[in-house]
Amino acid sequence: MKLLSLNRAASAPIQTLDGEWVTSAIRKRPAEGPVAVGPMGLDGDEQADLTVHGGLSKAVYAYPSEHYPFWQTVRAQAGVADWQAPLPWGAMGENLSLSGLLEGQVWLGDRLCFDDCELVVSEPRQPCFKFNVALGFKHAVKLMAQSGYCGFYLAVQRPGRLQAGEAFRVVPGPREVSIPELFKLAMRGR
């Protein structure tokens, strides 16, 4: 398992697909070099709406890189103007672009152990309308709900530094509730 990219963004105005302007930090971009990780997340990263993103339990958002081809394909099918351009790491709004760890392998309480930092799985992401903006078409949220390609939030167990390219290991938690189970439950109520 590997950390392919560390991604962050400042809050900035973005235009919704309906033409309205909102503030968001969903447009994450890869960071260079090591990045400090504290209790509230990556140094230099922001969340625009702390009622639904960020905080101690949702300090870091991880997303499996294995889902990127799916999103590239559905963007093409949706007729997104720049669908041929490869999606850059961070396009899903994630802080950590991971390889080798899918939602079906992740349970609440699992720990992702890096050399200098430890993160603990806290919950699945629940997509909002800003995900549609990030991917450029109006049904992205619905497709995330249907596919289960949601990624997961992490709390910072041990602050430290992370760097793209480093390996990590998963230390299992209690294995009582999986990310897919919790995501399905959350999406049922929406």
Rank of each mutant, 00 (worst) to 15 (best):
K2V: 06
L4K: 11
R8F: 03
S11Q: 04
P13H: 08
P13K: 10
Q15S: 08
T16M: 07
L17H: 12
D18H: 10
E20L: 13
E20W: 10
W21N: 04
W21T: 15
V22K: 14
S24C: 09
A25D: 05
K28E: 05
A31F: 02
E32I: 10
G33H: 01
G33F: 02
P34D: 03
V35F: 03
V35N: 05
V35E: 03
V37I: 14
G38R: 12
P39M: 14
P39N: 13
G41H: 06
D43T: 10
D45P: 10
E46N: 12
D49V: 04
L50M: 12
T51F: 01
T51V: 07
T51Y: 00
T51A: 12
V52R: 15
G55P: 11
G55A: 09
L56A: 14
S57W: 02
A59T: 08
V60H: 08
Y61A: 02
P64F: 02
S65W: 09
S65K: 07
S65H: 13
S65P: 00
H67L: 03
H67S: 02
Y68N: 05
P69Y: 00
P69S: 01
F70S: 02
Q72S: 15
Q72C: 01
V74K: 07
V74R: 13
V74M: 04
R75Y: 07
A78M: 05
A78S: 11
A81Y: 06
D82R: 09
D82P: 04
D82S: 14
W83E: 03
A85Q: 14
P86K: 09
P86D: 11
P88F: 05
P88N: 09
W89I: 00
W89N: 01
G90V: 05
G104C: 03
Q105A: 15
Q105E: 15
V106T: 13
W107V: 11
L108Y: 06
L108G: 08
G109Y: 03
L112P: 07
C113I: 06
F114M: 06
D115A: 14
C117H: 12
C117I: 10
E118H: 00
R125H: 10
Q126W: 00
Q126L: 07
F131K: 04
N132M: 02
L135R: 07
G136S: 06
F137M: 01
F137V: 01
A140K: 13
K142H: 07
K142R: 11
L143F: 10
L143T: 03
M144E: 01
M144W: 00
M144K: 00
A145W: 01
A145Q: 13
A145H: 04
Q146M: 10
S147G: 15
G148Y: 03
C150D: 03
G151E: 03
F152W: 15
L154C: 13
V156G: 05
Q163G: 06
A164G: 15
E166Y: 04
A167V: 08
A167H: 12
F168M: 07
P172S: 14
G173C: 11
E176T: 15
E176D: 14
S178F: 05
S178V: 07
E181T: 13
E181C: 06
L182T: 12
F183P: 04
F183Q: 14
F183S: 15
L185Y: 09
L185H: 14
M187A: 14
G189L: 12
G189I: 03
G189D: 10
